[in-house]
């Protein structure tokens, strides 16, 4: 049976894509993520990573520890480059 359910909406990855990659040997959550680009979309994996973790646990029969959750990377929500580049009032140069 093919598993057509979408797991990662941002990157358009199905459950079957995940299962196939696991069977090809990508059994590390981080390697799986890099192979399929899961978690690299606008939501940064908030939707998909826990699903992928469940599929990985089911396919390998091994528990995936919480420490091996991928790092979430700034920003929390998308922000425009224009807004980031803007100088605040009274500021002459970039401060850290």
């Amino acid at each position: 049976m093919k598993h057509h359910a979408i797991v990662c909406r941002c990157e358009d990855i199905t459950e079957q894509d995940v299962i196939d990659a696991i069977h090809q040997g990508y059994t590390d959550l981080e390697e799986l993520r890099r192979k399929l680009r899961i978690g690299m979309g606008p939501c940064q994996g908030r939707v998909c990573i826990s699903l992928v973790k469940k599929i990985l646990e089911k396919e390998t029969g091994k528990k995936v520890s919480v420490e091996s959750y991928p790092t979430s990377r700034p920003p929390v929500i998308p922000i425009s480059l224009g807004a980031l580049a803007k100088k605040t009032r009274g500021e002459n140069e970039t401060k850290s």
Binding site: M40, P75, P78
Partner: peptide, 8 residues
């Protein structure tokens, strides 16, 4: 300027 940054 009008484009969003997503990851860093």
């Amino acid at each position: 300027r009008h484009v969003n940054m997503l990851r860093h």
